[in-house]
């Protein structure tokens, strides 16, 4: 049974197991440092579809199909799927998954959605509500640009603090088994808003939420940063990562030795024109499913924290002068089922 350590932190005593995963990316991701670790990279950003929204749906479906194939399961073996993306009405997910006939719950947590969906997928297993669940998210640079910013061919300049929406998707299957990796705890973040209004600086908008969730987790579990091999944030990028380290330093929780950011891992900032780093639901999802989970499975890393961060930004509200609320959800992913207390 799950044990509540606080309002936000829940220990999953049955330790749901992440049984299979897959990461799919586009052209830019294929030119990045993690290219070799992806399951599938499509140099054709349209994924063979006629619009960017359909391309994103196709990409998400590809990630799900790959994860199912790796686990040798068919859609009818999955009791529930949690999915989300950045598009209005979450159409990347709904159109991508509509043919699967799996009970579906759509989620929106902006770029934090992979952690949110994986939390839900693990909690449903822990609570005995399902035997096998799936979590999947995606983002597509081109569909995100046209919804949130400018047409692709518009000759604008991006701010140095701006981040590049990843064209990527990650899917994970969760169930009950004795094979690593396991989800040991989840920490559901609260919305934190410290007044950032610049939509081109989402790392700064999200950093306080990440700091708040990480601090709450360490407080509730009495664990220390040194108990973990790595602490991954979702897509804080260069600016947000600097701010996160600074905020946690003030809390007496230095994590610079363990911290890495998915948005800084996915691309090479020196050679790829991504400014402050990658972002998007697909950024943390694909880094989790390509880079992190295989290493935890092999035992190269025993314990990691996966803290996906989201800027709950609406172009309409930003135009109305509102600031950008941030959110971060955390999962403790481990190579071992562990004992009580760790």
């Amino acid at each position: 049974m799950a044990k509540r350590l606080s309002r936000s932190t829940i220990r999953l005593e049955s330790c749901p197991s992440i049984q299979a995963w897959a990461a799919v990316g586009g052209k830019m991701e294929g030119e990045g440092p993690l290219a070799d670790e992806f399951d599938f990279l499509n140099p054709d950003t349209t994924f063979g579809e006629s619009t960017w929204e359909k391309a994103e749906s196709r990409m998400m479906r590809t990630a799900v199909d790959r994860a199912f194939a790796k686990a040798k399961v068919c859609p009818s073996d999955v009791d529930i799927i949690f999915a989300g993306d950045l598009l209005n009405q979450c159409v990347g997910s709904t159109y991508g998954l509509r043919e699967l006939e799996i009970p579906f719950l759509g989620l929106y947590g902006a770029c934090s959605t992979m952690a949110e969906s994986l939390c839900m997928a693990s909690l449903f297993i822990e609570g005995g509500l399902a035997e096998r669940t799936a979590a999947v998210t995606s983002s597509h640079f081109c569909s995100a640009e046209r919804q949130f910013r400018f047409p692709l061919e518009y000759g604008g300049q991006r701010a140095p603090t701006a981040q590049w929406t990843a064209t990527a998707s990650g899917a994970a299957l969760v169930g009950r088994s004795m094979a690593a990796p396991f989800v040991r705890e989840v920490c559901i973040g609260s919305i934190v808003d410290l007044g950032i209004t610049d939509a081109a600086n989402m790392g700064a908008a999200m950093a306080p939420a990440a700091a708040s969730t990480i601090a709450a987790y360490f407080h509730d579990t009495h664990l220390k940063p040194a108990d973990f091999d790595r602490i991954f944030t979702g897509d804080l990028g260069l600016v947000g990562s600097t701010l996160l380290l600074e905020l946690l330093e003030r809390e007496g929780l230095p994590i610079s030795a363990q911290h890495a950011d998915c948005g800084l891992l996915l691309y090479d900032r020196q050679s790829q024109d991504v400014h402050a780093g990658g972002s998007g639901c697909g950024c943390s999802a694909s880094v989790l499913c390509s880079h992190i989970l295989p290493r935890v499975q092999k035992g190269e890393w025993k314990d990691v924290l996966f803290v996906a961060t989201g800027a709950l930004m609406s172009p309409t509200l930003v135009q109305q002068g509102e600031s950008i609320p941030g959110i971060a959800h955390l999962l403790h992913i481990s190579n071992t089922r562990g004992k009580e207390g760790m």
Binding site: T242, L243, L247, A276
Partner: peptide, 8 residues
Amino acid sequence: LADKASPP
């Protein structure tokens, strides 16, 4: 803090 961390 954010201004300091943001490259101009």
